[in-house]
Design a protein around this nucleic acid. Sequence first.
RNA 1: GCGAACGUGGUGAAGUGGUUAACACAUCUGGCUGUGAACCAGACACUCGUGGGUUCGAUUCCCAUCGUUCGCC
Length: 374
Amino acid sequence: MKDFYLEIKHICKQTGARYGVLHTPHGDVEVPMFMPVGTLATVKTLSPEELIGMGSGVILANTYHLHLRPGEDVLSKAGGIHKFMNYPGPILTDSGGFQVFSLMDNRKISEEGVTFKSHLDGSTLEFTPEKVIAIQEKIGADIIMSFDECMPYPVEYEYAKKSVERTLRWAQRGQQAQLRDDQALFGIVQGSDFADLRQHSAVELTKMNFPGYAIGGTSIGEPKDVFIKMIEQSVPFLPEDKPRYLMGVGSIDFLLEGISRGIDMFDCVLPTRIARHGALMTSIGRVNIRDAKYKEDFSPLDANCDCYTCNHYTKAYLRHLYISEETFGKRLLSIHNVRFLISLMEKARRAIKDDRFGDFKKEVYQSFVGDKGF
RNA sequence: GCGAACGUGGUGAAGUGGUUAACACAUCUGGCUGUGAACCAGACACUCGUGGGUUCGAUUCCCAUCGUUCGCC
């Protein structure tokens, strides 16, 4: 599809980090980029205006959850997800592959697809690669994802091998089922932490010539060295000129490690979820706003942050709102965390352009106080 | 003044003649990674109003005392 392509503008001379512009039907966005997650067509507590104001590019929504409610026909009748939720920028829908992992107790996998038992009413839902594409075409995002199996970690080699092969067949089936030509369908590399499987997965997907590639099956509880291994086992076998999307990554260290290894896109619920639970990402590391030590701390959350929350409110006030379970507190904390990661990406892009991403990464780590990093 | 009931952690409260005194809330502390998550986990009463007695052993039984509440003059 002609409206969708990655323009790589610079590759950092210190690392493999890439700076570029991703062209989409809903505008151009710079990479590396962090994509906030709005599973049910809303990034929890935040308005589209706020997101755009924070510099957000792509946001995510979820096929499985939107299929359950309100149903893709509603999205279709609304004129697509952009109109439905009033988000003017690019949107990506995840395929439901992550739910194959997260809803493991309520699903069965076969060659044909996955049978879920709805977590809402217990009804049976058949997800096939073809159906998942059809749903995503009705939802109408700019980027859609192949249906895959996100495997748990660790898994037996034999199982991983079977799963990877099946996910490859699903990718092909999904691609063949695609009718619309204005949505970029991404393939997803799997293979757990097995080098040959990751390579095989990446090589075979590349042969199918997708407009973009994702690396899945990471950040599901594996140790950091395994996480890095999974990236390094995948990236070298993906085409240079296509966007690379590392799924489910949102902690500061994982983001930086991903960028330095040539990843362009990341998504994660982490900033929004932990914000609602009172945890904040700051330039000096993690802050748990509920801690008693902030009761009379009238300084901003992060002196180095330019977000609305840090510009207008104190830790003491934010703590008060959190302890009192006020909705406004969850909004202010979400605003901070999302802006923090978007801002981190802006700084990362600057560093890449200046050929000093390696130094930048070190500086970020060094600014963490104690072991309170992410 | 008389009668009755009750006195258990910050709060509301279970409970038993015998190992670590429920539970909830509050408080404190962690965790959360393609959202089944405004969620989950852990900590928190050297002690059951006070004094004495019975008993091998009392928060639990008895007496006294203080306090609270209710009822009656």
